[in-house]
Design a protein around this nucleic acid. Structure first.
Lengths: 195, 195, 195, 195
DNA sequence: GATGAATGAGAGTTCATTCAT
DNA sequence: CATGAATGAACTCTCATTCAT
């Protein structure tokens, strides 16, 4: 399996670093190859083309990202707690890898529409995790009945995404994780049963 | 004043159409010129360079966008009503001009980081409008005290933006404006005084 | 006669200034028009095209240049004195008009080969003046018999031209006219009867 | 070392031919590449940009040019003989490579002022060779004391340059090398001790 | 005569991808 | 497997010239 080989991972890591440092449009294959310590041509033994690298970057990183969140959530019972954990983990992981934060929030969005569609595909499992929490929350009587799940999920994801993007644009100057409770309060209030 | 001349507006409109139709990266100056019915060189009598066209597109369109919203809001007294109006107008205007929706939600985000910073500058007045509503709402006792205004604004804007983007990606198949009340409920609940 | 009209001369003077200030390749018609205080289109009422302006600049300025020299020489009898006068006048005139010096020694030489051929045509009267001095000098027994006149003239003109060009490149920092006697001595020795 | 690779030399030779045939301004990269039998992009593996090609052409050719002259001169003892050799070699080498003659005397002078300054730098070693001959000649009592060396050198170089340029303009119709003795006589007389 | 807005052809350079070694 | 030299398509912007007013 190609994805197990050391050079595959080397190239992925090199791509993240190069893109974070130079920006999407200044990240030529030759730079990635140099950073990875391989020849330009070698890249094409592991990836179909440049787009394939970018998709793979997102795939790999997003996979770990979701896995971490899913694992952390599995320990919680209440949808409320799950949501807080998701928010915290979302913020924590992007705080921990600031290259990845730049790449996902700013640089990868400069790709063409076709690539963005593929990235959206990769995001789906994460969105499903959110959907599940909403559904559970409704079943547990925490959230009100009749919620439009996709809409609620868009509101949650949009909120998180915008907050992280602003934090990246502001050069990650403040503590993102500290904001998790306030964000959580906003969302749960937003979704909760009216009194 | 250059911006009053008919060709200026012609080129702006042509740019929106071409970008919406072909995507950001496939929108060559020559295509825009052709669509506008002018020579390539004429573009440069009205715009400094390609980036200047894109910024101007956003400036012009965003200017009208905000103006409309600000006007509609000014008729309302309650922050609650203002917020609903803002959401409705946000959705309504992008529904009315589906080319613009594609351009603002998808294509313009592919621009380089420098251009994106400029676009963020242009967005600021809109964000201020949101800030003002949050502050008013707090003063009117509708929203709870001690709200982190920038954070609340990011949550509102992020929510709206993500919802519109999803609607555009899904080819604008459903009625966006109809979702305004649900979104409004989510947000006001999120911000409101806890009981 | 077009050449008598005030705007004709205005444009010529503007061209010299603009070329001296900006260099040959950065001297667009629009700049020359602006400097001359006329519209771009007006240029074409007085000149066939851009090349025509440049030729005319050289023609006008060179005409005056030669006229001055020819007049000064006519007062001398000995070929020797004539040569010294020519050298002094050559240096003196370019010293007096440093814009012209830049234009003739550096900028106009960047023109294409076709234009340079035409400039060579304009130079011919000046070269004839030099030829005449050589012939007279030989007849007066000052220069040796059997001189190859074109060759001698090339040596004289080449010498003067190189000296002026060096002086221009060195930003006209030293007194060019002061060098006339030394140059004159070099040339007359070079051409004189051997003993 | 890039300069040793065959393609480097191929491109240099192609540039000389293309410039000689088409003139400076009509020598597009694509023409040079075609003449060299390489792709346009290959040029940029060996040269930074178009200006770099032109500088390199001059550097390479001028390097050989000076080397040849320096070598020939080294065998002579008398400054007089050295000067004659220099003149003969100067004429002989440009006669031998008529493309090079066109390029150096006519085409390369159309370059912008910045490039011309660089070309002047490359010329310096040649001018130093001339300076050395003048100084030696003075020490040997052949030339008169108190010669202004830079001025004398300008006269020598200006003379040679003008003669070659005229010969090129006249389509190299006559034998340039045959004129060396007359030029030599002119110069040595010009510089020699007065009797 | 004078204007100046409009025209549109033309070229240097980058970089993803290939393929002979 | 790995290399890296070679490829060549693609695009923005300038500016001399025109012509309707």
């Amino acid at each position: 399996m190609k994805k197990q080989k050391p050079k595959y991972k080397q190239i992925i890591e090199a791509a993240v670093e190069v893109i974070a440092k130079n920006g999407y449009h200044a990240s030529q294959i030759s730079k990635i190859a140099k950073q990875a310590g391989v020849a330009d041509g070698t890249i094409y033994l592991y990836f179909k083309n440049k787009e394939d690298i970018l998709i793979s970057v997102f795939e790999e990183k997003m996979g770990q990202f979701i896995e971490q969140i899913a694992y952390s959530i599995s320990e919680k019972v209440q949808a409320n707690d799950k949501l807080l954990t998701l928010i915290e983990m979302h913020f924590r992981q992007l705080t921990a890898d600031h290259h990845l934060a730049i790449v996902t929030q700013l640089e990868l969005r400069q790709s063409n529409t076709a690539l963005r569609m593929k990235i959206n595909q990769i995001l789906k499992p994460y969105l499903s995790v959110i959907d599940d929490i909403i559904i559970e929350g409704t079943e547990q009587g925490l959230f009100r009945d009749g919620l439009n799940v996709p809409l609620a999920r868009q509101m949650i994801f949009g909120t998180l995404d915008e907050i992280v993007t602003n934090w990246v644009i502001n050069e990650q100057k403040y503590d993102l994780v500290k904001q998790a409770p306030a964000v959580h309060a906003f969302i749960t209030n937003g979704l909760s049963v009216k009194n």
